[in-house]
Structure formats: C-alpha cells, structure tokens
Design a protein around this nucleic acid. Structure first.
Lengths: 142, 142
DNA sequence: TTAAAACATACTCATTGAGTGTAGATTTTA
DNA sequence: TAAAATCTACACTCAATGAGTATGTTTTAA
C-alpha cells in the first residue's frame, strides 16, 4: 500500500512540475494540492535531503525541483518515502536483505515470485518520470 | 509490503501442496514451514473461511487444500490475508473506493499510474496458481 | 527590524502487525 | 465411555508504524 505520505509527495511534486513559477512556498503547495501543511513540510524536507527538491529560505523563499522533471524517476520518489518497491526484502534490488528463516534462497519459490512482482512494479515505476505525470494525458494507452 | 502473515500463509500452502499426505495437522505444518503455531492457526482459519483450505477435527484431523492447487490463485491468497493488490484503493478492481480528496478521478494521473502498477502486479499474481510454486523450478526463466 | 518563509526536534495518538493464552468443541480409538 | 489429539473462537498483549501537530530557531529581503 502506498502511504498517505507518498501520495502527498507525488501530488506535491506534480503540482510543482506543473507551475510556471520559479519556486513555491510550502503553504501554496499545501493549499493547491490539499495537503496538511506541517505534514507537507516534513515530506519536502525528506525530498530535499534526497536531492529531489531544493529550497530557498527567507521571505519570498520556497521549494522548487532540484532537477528536470524528466530525470525525476517515480520509483525513486516512492523508495525515498515508503522504502523499497519489492513486497519482501529478499526480493529487493535496492535494499536487499536475507530472510531470517530462509534455508535455501536460490530455491525459494516465494522469493522468485516476489522478484517477478518487484520487476513488474519497477517496470512501471522506474520507466516513468515526473514529467510523464504532467504532460501525458493517457498513461494507460501505451 | 507483504506481511509476515501473508508470507506464512503462502509457505504453509506450498507445504500442503507438496505433501502426499491427505491432510496435515497445523502443528506439523508449523514445524515444517517454521511458523509460530498459534499464529498459523489464525491464518488457516482465515484461509478456511475463504474456501482455500478445509479441515477435519479430532484425532487424525488436520488441514488440507479445499480445491486443486491449480485453481488456487496466488493473487487471491494475498487479497484474503493482506487486502487488495493495488497500491491505492481508487486503483483497485476488487476493492475500489473513491479518494476523499479527489476532484476529478478520470483526470487523476496518480490513479492512472497506480492502475498500471496494480495491473502489473495482477499480471504476475493472478496468472499463477499454487501449483506453479510447487512444480515449476524456474519461474523467472519464462 | 520585521514578516514570511524554511528548518529542526520532539511529541501525540490511533491503528496495525505479530503474535499468545485460555477455554471449549469435536472426533476417533482404546 | 473416556482420553487424547485436534480444531475453533475470542480476547488479549505489546511494539512498531502511520499520520499528523507543536514549538521554536534560523534565514532572507524589503
């Protein structure tokens, strides 16, 4: 399940990618995207610490995308906020971890299955960038 | 993320599908698959109530698959234990629910994206049955 | 110097996850 | 018919997570 936090992060980033303004204060983003402001502050902090957005302090400060919306990968946003895509850690490429109780990982059918699920998810989320959520009107058409 | 509960459910069902015995007491399943027994009892209850397994009481009782391993769909097992596959309810086919804050669902890029993710997951999980986890030695090869 | 913004830390509070415990019901066989 | 082994139901614990809030500090430009 996608957390509210990740959902808000994506909504906020979409809004930021859509605006023509050079930067937006979190308050404006919160109002426009219908997100509790203080919670959004936390989220924007995390995104900033991970190089997705950048900020300028002081009056007339605010947040802006740290790089082009074409190089912001949707899978990465979700990983930053919610952690690995894979349904189980032993099937994660970016955050692999062995199962406590696993006897023979190579033979584990569950792991194989979940690797397939992970790859299917990655196929969608790591092939799309933030810009795709702004311009492309019918993602499902392709 | 797959819960421990769902992982245990799958491990238990794989074990049941692999045995040649007509039925197995939960204690044996728990030992063989390394699952806390009382927790497994809860899980088997849920699976029974959803027609995946059936049980016989008394001495020499136990649990057995309620239908052929070929007609037990992996996606359904996960839905029973962990709920819908979709990362967000508005993108679920089996448990659809509108977002509180959604203005125009048809235009919501987030929903489109998550529908694609859901379909990708379903493509793996709803196309495979319990039997696939028993016999097929290399799921990823295909 | 002051208003508006980002930034940091810590806190609440309900829900979920991961189990355990106890008691009771059912069935077979000795 | 009673013991033994099992299923079944319900309630309970206990820690972690999710979803925010609150308070205060620092920065910046007018």
């Amino acid at each position: 399940m996608l957390s509210m936090k990740a959902k808000y992060a994506l909504k906020a980033l979409i809004h930021m990618a859509q605006t023509d303004r050079p930067m937006l204060p979190s308050k404006q983003i919160a109002e426009a995207a219908d997100i509790p402001q203080k919670f959004l502050d936390n989220i924007l902090q995390e995104l900033r610490q991970n190089g997705i957005v950048d900020s300028k302090r002081g009056i007339f400060g605010g947040y802006f995308l740290a790089k082009d919306a074409r190089s912001i990968i949707l899978g990465d946003i979700i990983r930053i906020i919610d952690g690995p895509l894979a349904p189980i850690r032993c099937a994660s490429l970016t955050a692999y971890q062995k199962c406590e109780d696993c006897r023979d990982e190579a033979a584990c059918q569950l792991r194989h299955l979940m690797l397939d699920v992970r790859n299917a998810m990655s196929g969608v989320l790591d092939q799309r960038c933030l810009q795709d959520l702004v311009t492309d009107p019918s993602l499902t058409a392709a």
